[in-house]
């Protein structure tokens, strides 16, 4: 579904991503965990080409993004919806209008929009708030509107960049529940970046641990895998503290 082949990215003199390869299967919930600055946000942004790799290639459903025209990339992006830590809703549009935006962009006729917008809002349980503005909502509600907006165009993948990191534990659970339902009921592949181990553990089937711009480990989310993940993350932190370099491994 999504494959990264040896991608690297540099910002000025800072190497954000160093030679990362990974492959995400259709229908799975894939987690990327790591400390801040580990490069995980840059990595997820490469999957829809908001961030272009300096080296390596990104392949979506067999299409290498460096081989296709910009217009095609814009089209592909419509099926790879993204959810952000800061929600990124348009503050001057109502909840309804925010959710309708992707339909406008993909030129869905106006008469067909209402039903899909309402269906999407119903899925996240916010149909009644459709005439409110984002500024009137709580953080958890805003994130659910953002998820409804991401869903409205029937994407095949949902890219979630720290979707719960601005939320308290209760609303985090609500949002995670919505994401789980999206995966189970709609069969949408989900990639989720987080620095919270609990979020990753409760949701993902496979997890990549990132550190210092590199893939440190990729494990299954089962007791052995989790133990391994926690161990390797801890081991990594320890080695950083003792002044060692992650490249030594």
């Amino acid at each position: 579904m999504i494959t990264l082949h040896n991608v690297s990215k540099q910002f000025e003199s800072f190497e954000a991503i160093k030679d990362v390869s990974l492959s995400i299967k259709s229908g799975e919930i894939y987690g990327i965990i790591g400390a801040s600055g580990a490069g995980k946000s840059t990595l997820i942004r490469m999957m829809n080409y908001i961030e272009r790799p300096d080296e390596g290639s990104v392949v979506i459903d067999g299409e290498a993004l460096d081989q296709v025209k910009h217009k095609r990339i814009r089209h592909i992006r419509q099926s790879l919806a993204m959810v952000f830590q800061g929600y990124n809703l348009v503050g001057n549009k109502t909840v309804y209008d925010n959710v309708a935006v992707p339909l406008e962009l993909s030129k869905v006729p106006k008469r067909d929009r209402a039903e899909r917008v309402l269906e999407s809002l119903r899925f996240v349980g916010l149909e009644t708030l459709k005439n409110q503005y984002p500024g009137q909502l709580s953080g958890g509600q805003k994130q659910r509107v953002a998820i409804a907006r991401a869903l409205v165009n029937n994407p095949s993948v949902l890219l979630c960049d720290e979707p719960t990191s601005s939320l308290d534990p209760n609303t985090t659970a609500e949002v995670l529940d919505v994401l789980k339902r999206i995966n189970e009921r709609l069969g949408v592949t989900i990639v989720i970046v987080s620095h919270e181990m609990e979020v990753i553990k409760s949701l993902c089937q496979r997890v990549t641990v990132m550190a210092d711009g590199q893939v440190y480990d990729t494990v299954e989310n089962n007791p052995t895998g989790v133990q391994h993940m926690e161990h390797s993350a801890a081991g990594f932190v320890e080695r950083l503290r003792s002044g060692g370099d992650a490249n030594d491994s």
Binding site: H75, R77, L105
Partner: peptide, 8 residues
Amino acid sequence: EAAVSMGA
């Protein structure tokens, strides 16, 4: 950024 991610 959200706009770009939507393919606008």
